[in-house]
């Protein structure tokens, strides 16, 4: 049966193979000739990686112990990943402040949080970071494409 302990190493083997093809297409250096070229180490490591993954697969097949597995990605973690990406996209569009206020509020609503205190804490946090970065550390926060 295909499970994660076989699928993941197999995936890495496939990726390493693609890398080996890419490595063979590295351009020739123009300015520096070196005894060991730019392609040697990436190729060596990709090959070692394929060997490790191969051994891992064999090891797993020999290991008869079957452990009951939780699903790799639960619905909650998928929400987490989508939330992360949406937040990052929102930041690049409307900037840190708005994106964080919207993001945090949405998150609390999604989890059906009813305590008003939590909302207040969330907003205070967002503004504190805004103040800390902008005024104290003088580090620019993302402004967002729409506003700058």
């Amino acid at each position: 049966m295909l499970n994660r302990n076989i699928l993941f190493p197999a995936l890495i083997i496939a990726l390493s193979a693609i890398l080996l093809v890419l490595i063979s297409q590295f351009p020739e250096p123009r300015f520096q000739d070196a005894p060991v070229g730019a392609d040697f180490f990436p190729a060596a490591i990709a090959i070692i990686q394929i060997i490790i993954c191969g051994v891992l697969i064999v090891q797993h097949k020999n290991n008869k112990k079957t452990v009951k597995e939780e699903p790799l990605l639960s619905s909650k973690s998928i929400f987490g990943v989508v939330f992360l990406i949406a937040y990052a996209v929102l930041i690049s569009l409307v900037g840190y402040l708005l994106a964080s206020l919207i993001g945090f509020t949405f998150y609390l609503i999604y989890y059906k949080v009813k305590k008003p205190l939590y909302y207040i804490v969330a907003w205070i946090f967002v503004f504190t970071i805004y103040f800390l970065f902008g005024e104290v550390f003088v580090i620019s926060l993302p402004e967002g494409l729409l506003f700058y």
Binding site: L19, L22, I23, F26, P27, E28, P29, R30, F31, Q32, D33, A34, G37, A38, F41, P42, I45, A46, Q49
Partner: peptide, 18 residues
Amino acid sequence: GLLVSMVGLDPISSVPRF
């Protein structure tokens, strides 16, 4: 990790890698 660290211009020969 090693393969990730090799992304970028090769610091010796300036050849772009991955």
